[in-house]
Design a protein around this nucleic acid. Structure first.
Lengths: 207, 207
DNA sequence: TTAATATTTAATAGCTCTATTAATTTCAGA
DNA sequence: TCTGAAATTAATAGAGCTATTAAATATTAA
């Protein structure tokens, strides 16, 4: 053991593992590297978390849980008109992504590695958004009838929203390198795209 | 050796490797598995391609080259008006993705594994689109002045196009499982989103 | 202080993977 | 038919990784 970061090793291991898993993915991360980074013996990783697989699960079941809870936290939605609802949904979705920029990539890469995990995801996605979906569906229908919105299906609208929001974060690691973005430019891009996405979507809905 | 697929083993190895690399990514693919799938000795993989790294490069330099060539093949663009140009670009971009649905994920996952490969990408992306970018920039400016399009920067427009097109293919492996899509439903979704994306983008550009 | 318990380490078994080498088989052309 | 090159295989070195075990060290409670 080299540097004592206050934190007990059990927690250091967890946090270091999270960082490395997010950076390199499951396959490219070894418990040896995690231990080396923490500065402890490799057996200790297994002492606290038994297997690499289990360590990964401990981290990301928690991680995914809060991620999706945040995404579907729409209590303030009821009293708004449809356009404000939509704006709120897009922006808060975008905000959650901004706070967890590497989660989409992880979900993408790790869920194709272990399709059985998708069931966990499915549960999370089934419960919460059911009433949300119904409400939005009703609202959208209504707006279309009132002539305030062009004809469009809710499913397609949601796919477009998710696509526009998520794609930036999926492509960011490459864009960053490809375009040699500074940290500042990156932040600027992320914040600019937030309003651009809202704008883009709302504008496209005009009748 | 078990089954003789006509093809010489050298080529079978190449094609099998491509398939498995696309499915599992570099790290999760072993030369042992490639050989087992082909039905030949594992040493043969190395006999023909020396290293796993080299095999991967042989496959994907070729793959990426044609992928980006197709994407930037815009010879028929000159005589069209701006809206038709845009439609053409969106659709042909989408078509290339439809033909190579797994390339985006591969680029995403493998380029973060080996950032030095990004330089190769950078070259491809620098040469071709220069004049295209200039032309579109001029056209867009012009349309805005003429009042046929709302104010928007070309960069933002392109990010939106790429996001809408690519995101579907990035998310498809998960969506497929999550929503239990049949092969038919998947194809239907892919073809519907093509026109939806064009529609969505063009509608959002109205002044 | 002591004994029990928790933490940490060293050592290593066992596995899989990459890459190499030497031996064997196949096959085309003299 | 024989020869030499090309193709293919068997065997294995060497590395890294996961997981376990037993021993050592630190900590806590009585």
């Amino acid at each position: 053991m080299e540097i004592n970061n206050e934190q007990p090793l059990e927690k250091q291991i967890l946090e270091t593992a999270e960082k490395i898993f997010l950076e390199k993915g499951y396959a490219m991360t070894s418990t040896t590297e995690i231990a080396r980074t923490v500065g402890c013996n490799q057996a200790l990783v297994h002492y606290y978390y038994r297997t690499k697989e289990n360590l990964f699960n401990v981290i990301f079941e928690q991680k995914f849980r809060t991620f999706f809870q945040e995404i579907f936290d729409f209590q303030h939605l009821q009293n708004l008109n449809f356009f404000d609802k939509l704006k709120f949904i897009i922006e808060s979705h975008y905000d959650v992504l901004t706070k967890n920029p590497k989660i989409p990539t992880l979900i993408l890469t790790e869920l194709s590695r272990r399709p059985e995990q998708i069931n966990i995801l499915r549960e999370k996605l089934r419960m919460l958004p059911e009433q949300l979906f119904v409400m939005l569906s009703r609202d959208l229908e209504n707006e279309i009838i009132q002539g305030r919105i062009r004809k469009i299906g809710l499913k397609d609208l949601l796919i477009s929203i998710i696509s526009l929001n998520i794609a930036l974060f999926l492509m960011m690691p490459i864009a960053e390198n490809l375009l040699q973005l500074s940290e500042y430019q990156k932040d600027e891009l992320i914040s600019r795209r937030k309003s651009e996405n809202v704008d883009f979507i709302l504008k496209s809905l005009r009748p």
